[in-house]
């Protein structure tokens, strides 16, 4: 059972974890990404490529399911404008044992960062706006999975 959602609305990680726990495995792992308030940042806007986003995220989940024996995986990515402390992204996995759940969760967020069509724009208290530059260590994190 896998689920991929792209939405402007907030999500509830607790509810997502409960759904994964109900799948009958012995292990549930998750990652939640939040807006950080570095350098006076007040807003973060996520732009997406709507025609491609869901397909790209689904392909990443399918790859995780090929590599690990998962009972379920959930990926939720928000788009639109968020404020400091808001949740941006959720990845959750359920498996019989912890290794598959933990590794698949790390794989999903690493691949999502480099293979899903989203772009972040930061807005600061002093009025500056800038597009976030891709980070080489994100490519490195994705590459470690081969």
């Amino acid at each position: 059972m896998s689920a991929v959602r792209v939405q402007t609305e907030p999500f509830d990680p607790g509810a997502e974890l409960l759904a994964l726990e109900a799948l009958g495995g012995g292990a549930v792992a998750s990652f939640t990404g939040l807006v950080r308030g570095d350098d006076g940042l007040i807003e973060l806007t996520l732009e997406q490529y709507p025609a491609m986003t869901h397909r790209a995220l689904s392909a990443i989940v399918e790859e995780a399911e090929r590599r690990w024996p998962l009972l379920g995986a959930t990926v939720i990515h928000r788009c639109g404008t968020m404020r400091v402390g808001d949740r941006i992204v959720f990845v959750g996995t359920a498996a019989r044992h912890r290794a598959a759940a933990l590794d698949a969760c790390a794989f999903l967020i690493d691949w999502l960062k480099t293979k899903a069509p989203f772009w972040k724009r930061e807005a600061f208290a002093d009025g500056r706006r800038r597009w976030v530059e891709a980070r080489a260590d994100d490519d490195g994190a994705a590459a470690r999975w081969g």
Binding site: H77, I109, K113, P117, W119, K120, V132, E133
Partner: peptide, 12 residues
């Protein structure tokens, strides 16, 4: 039919 041009992605 459709070409998209963009910077390296920065989601997650």
């Amino acid at each position: 039919r459709e070409l998209a041009i963009f910077p390296p992605v920065t989601g997650g």
